[in-house]
Design a protein around this nucleic acid. Structure first.
Length: 270
DNA sequence: ATGGTAGGAAGCCTA
């Protein structure tokens, strides 16, 4: 049993449905976790996605902002979601899937971007981002992460020097400041979670999943950041046989500013 | 050093 899992900040599902279709025809993930769907549940394009083979849909949407969804060819044993920071923001979904190795839990997160000023005293959005990470850390540990779990999403932080085009130039730019990186590393350590992507593509290699729209030639300039992540608990980390950042999608017409990140899980009996 | 682009909702906000 092999499961291909992908995460993608789609930046609005409705104008980019055909991109989901194109990605599906090329990589055919069994499970696709989306962020920033920007649509209420009753307007989510469920029928079109079911036609693609994603018979099982978990959605947590809201008007205009945020919104997450999990599209799956495999049935869900459970679906749940959680609010953070006493806000109603749609930033989390979790499902469990029954596999040959027992239940697999999948968390899909959209962590707050944090605004422009990297100071929690001056900027409420940055404060919110740090508080959100603290809540993740407190929750996603102990019994909660004792089994086989995957955590994916747009975490809006590029933790390593080689997760950004210039470590030095981004040290004071939200997404790569030391205080955020520490907070994210603390979430990871509390799990215990492993960075499944960096397990396979070591930090010696530069790796990005997001390129700003505000660039004349995003590919040539290549000023990217790795904001999108796939983590795994110890119980499944060694089952991940392959990872890929599907950069092609960033070059499509009217693209999302994020590229999909893909992981293959080999869950066959040994 | 600044401003550059995109989506959604409604004439600005967030990324």
């Amino acid at each position: 049993m092999t499961i291909t899992l992908a995460t993608w900040n789609i930046n609005s599902i409705r104008p980019r449905l055909h991109h989901v279709e194109r990605f599906d025809s090329d990589r055919a993930p069994d499970i696709l976790c989306l962020q920033e769907t920007k649509v209420m549940n009753d307007q989510f394009p469920a029928a079109a996605l079911k036609k693609l083979g994603y018979e099982h849909l978990a959605i947590n949407g809201q008007k205009s902002y945020h919104g997450v969804a999990i599209l799956s060819r495999l049935p869900f044993a459970s679906v749940d979601m959680r609010s953070f920071c006493s806000k109603e923001d749609a930033r989390h979904l979790e499902v469990t899937i029954d596999t040959d190795h027992g239940p697999l839990r999948i968390h899909n997160f959209y962590v707050p971007a944090g605004g422009d000023i990297p100071d929690p005293e001056e900027n409420d959005k940055f404060r919110h981002k740090l508080d959100f990470l603290d809540e993740m850390k407190a929750w996603l540990t102990g019994e909660e992460t004792a089994g086989a779990s995957i955590l994916v999403g747009d975490l809006n932080i590029a933790p390593h020097e080689n997760d950004v085009w210039s470590h030095k130039q981004l040290l004071k730019v939200v997404s790569h400041t030391p205080v955020e990186v520490e907070a994210l590393n603390a979430v990871q350590a509390a799990g215990p979670w492993q960075d499944a992507v960096r397990n396979r593509i070591p930090v010696e290699h530069r790796l990005y999943s997001w390129w700003s729209y505000r660039s004349r030639d995003w590919s040539k300039a290549d000023k990217g950041r790795r904001l999108d992540h796939i983590w795994a608990t110890d119980a499944v980390a060694d089952k991940i046989s392959h990872v890929e950042i599907y950069r092609d999608a960033r070059g499509w017409e009217k693209p999302s500013d994020h590229a999909p990140v893909i992981a293959k899980l080999d869950l066959s009996h040994s």
